[in-house]
Amino acid sequence: MKISEKIIEGGLFSSAVITILTTIGIIWVLLSQSLVFFKDVSIWEFLTSTEWTPLFTKKSYGILPLISGTMLTTLIAVAIALPLGLCIAIYLSEYAPRKFRDIFKPMLEVLAAVPTVVYGFFALTVVTPFLKNIFPEIDTFNALSAGLVMGVMIIPMVSSLSEDALFAVPKSLREASYGMGATRLQTSFKVLVPAASSGIIVSVILAFARAIGETMIVAIAAGQMPNLTANPLAAVETITAYIVQVSLGDVAHGSIEYRTIFAAGLTLFAMTFVLNNVSFFIRKKYQEKYD
């Protein structure tokens, strides 16, 4: 082999290695800064204290309110996106005429391409006033509005991946079911959804991870009030919104307040990391099943 060929291969290889360095970089940065943080704050306090007030004079470092805020908005989003996304996936793959599908599938995917700051504006200026008509006691910043809009954003994620999973179910199973006199609805829910369940689960996990990591919508519409509550009408703060809040303020580099974003970031990264890996391994397993 020529030397130039070797050099080219080396160049391509080092590009690929950058992705590994990125992961190492993320883990190293989060861990090293968090370690310094945990010298001042015990991990026990971090994980069990129910108050998060690092920017106040009376400081408390309990991550639970941020986690609960994150989970609350995420659960609302998934509660919207899962049924809608699944219905869309079934409709598009089993019912819709080809033309309808060819037109509306790309349009749906635009929903995922809209910048999230735009969704935040939508939540704050359209959805929250609308919700105020129904729930007069709702806060101006609230988990419900942000969660609902985030749900719309992740619909295409659930619908696209679920549709792929339904599509991968062998045609012979559809024929068997129709051949028994089942309707399309019965075939979809009694045969296809169970057979495609792993792919559908993957889509939901990925949507879940996406919602957990979503930042601008919650920073704009959910508020910046660490709040250990399950009340969707109240203002909350998510991990991501907290990181943005600190970044926008005048926090001195190297201070303990500054390091809180690394500890919060580490928590966020751990959550999405677990979810992404679970989905990756489910997908690997299920690909093998159909090949």
Partner: peptide, 10 residues
Amino acid sequence: MVFQKPNPFP
């Protein structure tokens, strides 16, 4: 109807 390839549901 019975099909060419056995197609039991999973």
